[in-house]
Computed example of a mutant assay.
Amino acid sequence: MKNADCIQTCLECAADCDHCLAKMAGMESSNDCPACCIDCAAACRACATLLASEGPFSREACELCAKACERCAENCEQHDHEHCKTCADSSRRCAEACRAMAA
């Protein structure tokens, strides 16, 4: 996977997390959603930034992003809301892309 592809995946995931967070505002949650969406979106944006600069911390950023995405997916997939399912799917794709970049 190229940097540009992973950057795009990270940015798409951040947008899906933002959407999920907005939809969950004021709703009851039985787990860490929407808090996990905040962390995941932040990790995705930081990862995209570090990948774009091709700096020395890209690998570590990808590892952290993958962990945040996995946590987010685990929480969001427990809900039946369409926005949570979309967020979980996007988070899984991002975790996979970041793991590939970190390898």
Rank of each mutant, 00 (worst) to 15 (best):
D39E: 14
C40I: 10
C40W: 13
A41R: 07
A41E: 09
A41D: 10
A41K: 05
A42S: 13
A42K: 10
A42E: 11
A42H: 10
A43P: 01
C44P: 03
C44I: 03
C47W: 06
C47Y: 04
A48F: 02
A48K: 00
T49W: 11
T49I: 13
L50T: 06
L51Q: 00
L51E: 00
A52G: 12
A52Y: 13
S53I: 10
S53N: 10
E54T: 06
E54S: 04
G55K: 02
G55A: 03
G55T: 01
F57W: 14
S58I: 06
S58Y: 05
S58H: 05
R59A: 02
E60P: 06
A61S: 05
A61T: 02
C62H: 03
C62Q: 03
C62I: 03
C62N: 04
E63Q: 11
E63R: 12
C65S: 02
C65K: 00
K67F: 05
E70K: 05
R71S: 08
R71G: 10
R71A: 09
C72E: 07
A73E: 11
A73Q: 11
E74P: 15
E74K: 15
N75A: 09
N75I: 12
N75D: 13
C76M: 05
E77L: 12
Q78K: 07
Q78W: 06
H79W: 07
D80G: 14
D80E: 12
E82A: 13
E82K: 12
E82S: 12
E82D: 09
E82Q: 13
H83S: 12
C84S: 04
T86W: 15
T86S: 14
C87S: 08
A88H: 05
A88V: 03
D89I: 15
S90E: 05
S91N: 11
R92F: 04
R92A: 04
R93F: 01
R93E: 01
C94Q: 07
C94A: 04
C94G: 05
A95K: 01
A95S: 05
A97S: 03
C98H: 02
C98M: 04
R99S: 00
